[in-house]
Amino acid sequence: MIVVEGLHFSYDGREILRGVDLTFGGEILALVGPNGSGKTTLAKHLNGLLKPVRGRVLVDGMDTRRHTVAELSRKVGYVFQNPEHMFFEETVFDEVAFGPKNLGIRGEELEERVRWALQAVGLEGFEERTPYSLSGGEKQRLAIACVLAMKPKYLILDEPTSGLDGKAEKSVVRTIRTLREEGHGVLLITHDMDLVLELAERVVLLFNGRELFEGSVEEFFELELEEYSLELPELLELAKGLGAGFVRSVEELMEVLG
């Protein structure tokens, strides 16, 4: 369980987080909010990249102020928005092996972890390719594999589908589902409301550094989203127009309509 209590954070004299409380366990939690609402700043506190000015963050009881990012990386994996910001090895295999190696894992276990992580994201057979030669969706999945190979309990994904085409997005969505089924907690930072509708189990809305809403996906989509520069997914607009209520997929909508 990750517990955030009364978290405050300021940068350059500007208050970015003004008292955020959050608990997060083995679920897919969507962290949403407009640009500049503090989503990434909050996420960076969860693996110790930022330390709280006031309040505290506990990762399975570990206070992030007393542990290094490297120590916390065994628990919390953070996949940054731009996958290319982490690629530097010559092959996909070495790229994925980098994280576990930093944790001191060698030999057979290392190899086993890399194969497992690549398989989990559907990139088996790519071991000898160059990371930069992959397509957008493959790069994103490789980035997830790089973090996954460290076997963290919790995963933070920052805008994992931005800039991806339909097929690539589907492959990332599938990967996230698999991770959830395998018992990982996934924190999804996104403004993609379709993704929230498709994947999330719980939603937290940040606005101006405050948590304005926390609850189920259904409750979330009952909010006036325009006020927070967010938009209702077209599927829900349609369902609303047809008087079908809350649905999560086209199939569900068709079922409701008979």
């Binding site: 290094t68 990012v69 990386s73 910001h85 994280g99």
Partner: peptide, 16 residues
């Protein structure tokens, strides 16, 4: 600031 972001990404992968 790009270097800062990249450093953060690699620190998240256990780089010290």
């Amino acid at each position: 600031s790009l270097a800062q972001t990249i450093m953060d990404a690699q620190r998240s992968r256990g780089l010290e």
